[in-house]
Design a protein around this nucleic acid. Sequence first.
DNA 1: ACAAAAGTGTTTCGACTACACCCATGG
DNA 2: CCATGGGTGTAGTCGAAACACTTTTGT
Lengths: 321, 321
Amino acid sequence: MVVSSIPIEISLDAVIVAVTDDAPRLLTIDGPAGMPALPSGPFQSRDRTLEMALRRWVLDQTGLDVGYVEQLYTFGDRERGPGSLGSADGVGSDDEVRQLSIAYLALVREGSPSAGASWRDVYDFFPWEDHRDGRPAMIDEVILPALQRFVDAGGDESRFRAERVRMAFGGPRLPFDGVRALERYELLYEVGLLFESAETRWRPDGGEAPGVASRPMYLDHRRIAATALGRLRGKLTYRPVVFELLPARFTLLQLQQVVEALAGIRLHKGNFRRLVEGAGLVEGTGELARTGGRPAELFRFRREVLGERPRPGVGTPWVRA
Amino acid sequence: MVVSSIPIEISLDAVIVAVTDDAPRLLTIDGPAGMPALPSGPFQSRDRTLEMALRRWVLDQTGLDVGYVEQLYTFGDRERGPGSLGSADGVGSDDEVRQLSIAYLALVREGSPSAGASWRDVYDFFPWEDHRDGRPAMIDEVILPALQRFVDAGGDESRFRAERVRMAFGGPRLPFDGVRALERYELLYEVGLLFESAETRWRPDGGEAPGVASRPMYLDHRRIAATALGRLRGKLTYRPVVFELLPARFTLLQLQQVVEALAGIRLHKGNFRRLVEGAGLVEGTGELARTGGRPAELFRFRREVLGERPRPGVGTPWVRA
DNA sequence: ACAAAAGTGTTTCGACTACACCCATGG
DNA sequence: CCATGGGTGTAGTCGAAACACTTTTGT
């Protein structure tokens, strides 16, 4: 209940996700220095709730009427570089303006946004997250070697660092876990493999880290997007959010492909179908859709499942690509 | 990136939880009108991160050095009555001060807070959440009848309301789910069974709703606490947070009782022990503890489990009381 | 002795996995 | 006739649920 007297800027930032043609996509605007940025709106008092404010300015700015919306996280670190973990650790000057960002995750079925906003592939920002065509080579060729140097240079912290790396990227007896997208992002940033900001790069040998080929975003927006990706992947498994990204009627393959796009892995077709039907998540309409091969039945989401199962969602029994 | 020009108060509110003698407890301060309130601190720019700011003022105010901290949610509804769902739906006056609360969940092992703060039993605020001695009678005697009236008076919305009630409190083929504490709280508030604020009470017959015997909190703080309870219950199952509430060495019964206290249900002893040991969550020290009966071995948390299992936590195989 | 708590074994059950195979259509 | 995608059967595995039972201490 204390009135804050320092200068503060508050924004509502939105990670707006859609899936088009097997590709998970992110709505971005052109930020300073030509960098992609998340759509961002003002915190205004005329809306009753934060979520309503968000919906309204997204509609105003992009013409998108977002469906599912959930609050992600509130970011308020002083250095709004994406990591806020690695670098400056002292108590800095008090005169700067403090940025507070209340970030939301929104899902839309598709979209034709108005000028100024464009859809970009999520995995352009996080190429190490897409395992649908096998484990990306960059992980073993670039990322893990760099992280190993980071571990080795850790001194007392070595063991702790090794544990972090293992938790983030998996290892023997511990599979890669899609949900830990944020941990991976923060690790890569901290180690200097990403180029949002050059200052915090970690150079074990004094040289330049080679870096990971990926698209940066304005300020810490990529960090926010990583938060969203991890959250969404987790939510998939216990809440029927996929259907927010699909048309009202869809084939099971479409459904599977959207899940695969978000989870970043391939699923086993036969099992997927049975699980999803067996869980009562979908029901067949009689209709058929013409596809490449044999026509497929169109299914629809069964809302009733919400009152039947405690945690209705699509698990991830996966398969090597 | 838009500068907000309306008057805003930002606070960092903390839901600080401990478990003492089988009772989950909440640290509260004396709020206006003698109501319990959550400890609340200023948003200050001199701390580098929000979490650090929180830790610092909690230490200053209460003397508590909190261990585990996680951001819960940011509350910014215009009416910071706890529900913000039921009542006023128009666009109100712009001249009021907007309250923004960034809420955190913190876990401590025990505590001797300084003057002004006191520990209260969590279930004093949420008596319908404690099922350790069987399903609380108030659910069937007071709550469900009132909710049924709410459903019946719903008109077009009846079906939707019935679904909400069923999801919140369970029903045939759908067990009561401890994690949905927030949904239950919001439902009860909306229906007028709680007395934070008299205005938003729903009276199907124009009379007074009987209400549920429970302790209110200042403003929407009980809503924030309900958010914390649900989140904590969920987290228990996939992250080893329980150990933040226990001493370094503990018996398996102690561990079980802390889990039971938070989950609000009784667990099956034999299975609990095997699950928790089988999952590699704990390891025995040789030492024994004198207890009421046969001495029990003291166990410790196995940190290594973090790098071994994807989602280390204590499931909730429960048992009737 | 008996209450109180610690601790173990065994069986059943169901969910998910892996693998293998058949079906229908369009080019 | 074969590529593409749709769709089914079945056996094995693993974790958890249910239930029953033995052991060791304090009073």
